[in-house]
Design a binder for these strands. Structure first.
Lengths: 212, 212
DNA sequence: TGGTGATATATCGACCCGATATATCAGACC
DNA sequence: GGTCTGATATATCGGGTCGATATATCACCA
């Protein structure tokens, strides 16, 4: 994914269900977004800090982490000066995060913001939490995504029109493939739109495509 | 695109043809990669600086930029202390960059490195300069990209197998679409591979898909 | 004469990524 | 019983990208 402020939404969305610590959050994110996105530590922990500072999540007490069996622990290490060095990093303590009412609000406003960007990444993330939206907001987001893709398609066409002669066959093939992929994306969005419009009355929202 | 060290390759690739300044470079990049990627100034200029520091490109003298019609220029502003402030920014001077022999080498080694990452972004960039590669290197890169996609496909399948029951219909649809898109990508790569293998003897490398 | 928009270079802050450091613990292997 | 490996867990660092913004020149038209 690698864009701006993209973690806040899914993190809050997952914490809505239940409180979790960072490591678990990452696993859940991976399960949900599968091959789309593997969150890196370097983004997750700073994001949690940002959310905590904004009051959107709160740290629960470290959940029975530290120093059980105190005898061994105190003896094993030299109890040295150096161990407290600087970061005082980690070990196994779990820092559990819980969403606050303010966090719930933030999640809602971020998710509902139909004016926000609808590139592949942002849209994917929002779609993963569509169940929390009203049907009309869902439709608005789908339409905006569709418009975005159509614009992209137009760019492809303009590009091909203007540069067709000047570019080599590989770049040309790339453009064609990109165009076809965008058309597929649009067709998929149209499916979702249809399901959204007719889905309330007709049948399951699920678009039965291939089954494994 | 937004990944690491992704600009060096296309910048060098374009400068191989002819020397250019930043603004033009960006336009060419846009023409070539069209809707895939619009390079931002915040990446382009630092990248040019990196390349210059590495000796891969050299700045040509500013190409007749500065202060023509000196009368007007000197009078209009207060000639003040503040104008030289800090950055001494820009105006219209053109800083033309030319590739050096060292830059040509760097380009070649980056492009040929078949062990490097083959995610969508990296692969797209390399494909845009495939014409500079030997057929066997091209094939190696295509095969590696194919393996990458197949692995991604396997991830999708594993994901669906493990989480199918637990995820809502939107996320499910997302996974299905992602899977289908990946399958399309693989089919496209296979086309390219076929063209590469048979292309030397049979016909045009161009895979005639839809025409506008 | 002045306004707009294209040309052109450059930096800033926020943020993401990959690599890495630190540490605990369960289970395997011998 | 000892140790090695790998999963669990938190955290930071350097380098790189992005979007926004500042600055400035010039062509063109009104």
């Amino acid at each position: 994914m690698q864009q701006h402020g993209m973690l806040e939404l899914p993190v809050l969305g997952l914490l809505k269900d239940r409180a979790m610590h960072g490591y678990e959050l990452r696993k859940q994110l991976g399960a949900m977004l599968g091959p789309f996105w593997q969150v890196s530590w370097g983004s997750l922990y700073p994001a949690l800090r940002r959310l905590a500072k904004a009051g959107a999540v709160e740290k629960l007490a470290d959940e029975a982490p530290a120093r059980p069996r105190r005898r061994i622990g105190s003896k094993a290490r030299e109890t040295g000066v150096k161990s407290t060095k600087s970061t005082l990093g980690a070990g196994r303590r779990k820092t559990v995060y819980r969403i606050t009412p303010k966090g719930e609000e933030l999640f809602k406003s971020m998710l509902e913001e139909t004016a926000a960007a609808v590139d592949a990444e942002h849209f994917t993330l929002k779609l993963a939490f569509f169940r929390y939206l009203q049907p009309d907001t869902r439709l608005a987001l789908l339409e905006r995504r569709r418009a975005y893709l159509q614009d992209k398609l137009a760019q492809f066409k303009a590009n091909l029109r203007d540069y067709r002669e000047r570019i080599d066959s590989y770049t040309l093939s790339l453009q064609h493939h990109g165009m076809a992929a965008t058309e597929n994306d649009i067709a998929w969005i149209d499916e979702l739109i249809n399901n959204e419009r007719g889905g309330g009355a007709v049948g399951p929202t699920q678009p039965e495509t291939t089954s494994v």
